[in-house]
């Protein structure tokens, strides 16, 4: 065993341990803030696995998207709804935990079994390593050009939609009429078109 392979093995073992323990922590810890931070750690460790596989582009994307966006968003959401609330204890919690644990383990066994008996096309093509990012760029502008451009339309539309849903409606006519607008009362309340006649 050369020093390169043993280093790789050690890195793999460390990263896998972090991932497994971290994911268990995400699920089992009582405090949701700890869970969120654990999730960030798991994402980082997965990015490390990608680096080990010589996929630096995927690793960078993983850090940017999952740690930089998804995880931060989760923490924001937790901060915004930070309400201390005493929850009622659920009946038969132990039984429920056992059942859901059994279901999860069953799924795991199924997936492992399928992964073992499937004839995967191995060994795959030789990894191109450092060239990968350039090659991905090339693909993005040739055979994946259509989805790539469409994704920009998707993002534009999602942004506009988010603004439309989140903004307060102020109409030009009101601004021109010089109506007195208090900051809190700008929200327009036009009567809904379909009147619910069932409720008196």
């Amino acid at each position: 065993m050369t020093i390169a392979t043993s280093t790789e093995l050690i890195c793999f073992l460390v990263l896998s341990t972090v991932i497994v323990l971290g994911s268990l922590g995400v699920v089992l810890l009582e405090n949701i803030v700890y869970s969120a931070f654990m999730l960030g750690g798991v994402f980082m460790a997965v990015a490390g696995l990608y680096l080990l596989l010589n996929a630096s582009f995927v690793a960078a994307a993983q850090v940017l998207v999952y740690v930089g966006a998804v995880n931060v968003l989760i923490i924001f959401a937790i901060m915004l709804v930070n309400k201390r609330e005493e929850l009622k204890p659920i009946k038969g919690l132990r039984l429920r935990r056992i059942v859901s644990g059994a279901v999860c383990i069953g799924l795991l066994v199924l997936l492992v079994r399928v992964a073992i008996i499937t004839p995967w096309p191995l060994p795959g093509p030789i990894a191109i390593g450092e060239e990968a990012t350039a090659r991905i760029g090339e693909h993005l502008f040739t055979d994946y050009l259509l989805p790539f451009e469409l994704a920009s339309v998707l993002l534009l539309m999602a942004m506009i939609g988010a603004i439309v849903l989140a903004r307060r409606d102020v109409y030009d006519s009101e601004l021109l009429a010089g109506d007195d607008m208090k900051e809190g009362l700008i929200e327009q309340t036009p009567t809904p078109l379909l009147v619910d006649k069932s409720s008196p």
Partner: peptide, 16 residues
């Protein structure tokens, strides 16, 4: 890939 991206464009616009 194009199936998924166009499917998402349709779906996200429909949600909005």
């Amino acid at each position: 890939v194009s199936v998924f991206v166009s499917l998402e464009t349709l779906s996200v616009a429909s949600y909005l």
